[in-house]
Amino acid sequence: MNKAFWKGRKVWITGHTGFKGTWLSIWLHAMGANVTGFSLEPPTEPSLYRLSGMAGRINSHIGEIRDVEQVRRSMAETAPDVVLHLAAQPLVRESYRRPEDTYAINVMGTVNVLEAVRSLHAAGHTVGSAIMVTTDKVYENREWLWGYREDEPLGGFDPYSSSKACAELVTAAYRSSYFPPARYAEHGVAIATARAGNVIGGGDWAADRLLPDCFRALERGEEIAIRRPGATRPWQHVLEPLAGYLRLAELLFCGGAAYAEAWNFGPREEDAQTVESIVRQVCRQWGEGAVYRVEEDLSLHEHHLLRLDCSKAWSRLGLRPRWTAEEAVGAVLDWVKAYRGGEDPYELCLRQMEAYEGVQSVSMS
């Protein structure tokens, strides 16, 4: 990642008030980028966005991703060099409860961002780099033991996964129709999608996510209840995919057509672990009094096994995972304990970013 690239760079982010969007905003702000966020109010209370004071550090537009005119207006006011679209309804279980909102936000929200890029281009400003963030769950999951590559068929059993697969198709259609890589020299717009595995990190208070649920139980002195102990997911610290997005955004801006496609961002194969394995690591690192129980909930369908093949990003983007799943869990616990001890969340994030940047990339050979 080239920090000099981001200094003074105009960046427009959707979902900047969420957990992942706040970490990304902090990182960009620390590198000197001119960041504008577009999002609803923070989705949780407490929220990392408020606790880190990001509202006073970046330009923040509170708006509705489903309203194309609001999206166009915010992007036009910013005239960004780089667009990073993270806004989403991100929870599988919530998508079962609110499928219509999930599709409206995840599919039409993506349409609206791409329409804003297109409108801005027609008005004479070129967004050089645009990344639509989706998920590892976009694939037609056949419970394979090996990881899915970017050219595997898209699918999605549940409304969340399906909506994100739709967002992939929408992005591909806009790219081929309005900003085809073969004509990049004419339009100068490079659009990619990013499919990341399960992320963990300090400052996440969302419901129905594994580590936040663990910490809520531990802080109440209760047993951790896990509903799908054998489910295997590609766990990674939030900084891992964010580093991928930033690297990809740089290369899109500078290299254009060569990188305007779909990309997987995930951990090494051995870090695709079961829910129970991750919870055991949490309990071991938390210390005395940390125990869990299994309460299997099979009322809603969730896939048992999901792995990503990230060899394309590792080879072509020059990326390597830096923290193992165990190290990622340790980083989250360090963040949570330091926050509970009164440390400033913004400084905690910066400190972990510095630690992450200081680790030499792990060799995949």
Rank of each mutant, 00 (worst) to 15 (best):
Met1Glu: 08
Trp6Cys: 11
Lys7Gln: 15
Lys10Arg: 15
Gly15Trp: 04
Gly18Cys: 08
Phe19Thr: 02
Gly21Pro: 11
Thr22Gly: 07
Ser25Leu: 07
His29Trp: 14
Ala33Leu: 08
Pro42Ser: 11
Pro43Gly: 14
Thr44Glu: 12
Glu45Tyr: 09
Ala55Asp: 13
Ala55Tyr: 00
Ile62Pro: 01
Ile65Val: 11
Val68Phe: 01
Gln70Ser: 05
Gln70Ala: 15
Val71Ile: 04
Pro80Phe: 06
Ala87Gly: 07
Pro90Trp: 06
Arg93Met: 12
Glu100His: 11
Glu100Lys: 13
Ile105Cys: 08
Met108Lys: 12
Met108Phe: 15
Leu114Met: 12
Glu115Asn: 15
Ala116Arg: 08
Arg118Phe: 08
His121Thr: 05
Ala130Phe: 04
Tyr148Cys: 08
Asp151Pro: 03
Asp151Ile: 06
Gly155His: 12
Ser163Tyr: 02
Glu168Ser: 06
Thr171Tyr: 04
Arg175Tyr: 01
Pro180Trp: 04
His187Lys: 09
Ala190Lys: 04
Ile191Val: 14
Gly202Gln: 05
Asp204Tyr: 08
Asp204Thr: 09
Leu210Ile: 14
Pro212Asp: 10
Phe215Ala: 09
Arg220Lys: 15
Glu223Trp: 02
Ala225Arg: 13
Arg228Val: 03
Thr232Leu: 14
Val238Gln: 02
Leu239Met: 15
Glu240Ala: 13
Glu240Gln: 14
Ala257Leu: 00
Ala260Lys: 02
Ala260Pro: 03
Ala262Arg: 06
Ala262Trp: 01
Asn264Ala: 07
Gln273Lys: 13
Gln273Asp: 00
Ile278Cys: 01
Arg280Gly: 00
Glu288Arg: 13
His304Thr: 11
Leu305Ile: 08
Leu306Asp: 03
Ala313Cys: 08
Ala313Val: 08
Arg322Pro: 08
Glu326Ser: 15
Glu327Lys: 10
Glu327Asn: 11
Val329Tyr: 06
Gly330Cys: 01
Gly330Glu: 10
Leu333Gln: 04
Trp335Ile: 02
Val336Pro: 02
Val336Tyr: 05
Glu343Ser: 12
Tyr346Ala: 06
Tyr346Thr: 03
Cys349Glu: 02
Leu350Pro: 02
Arg351His: 08
Glu354Val: 12
Val359Ser: 05
Val362Ala: 13
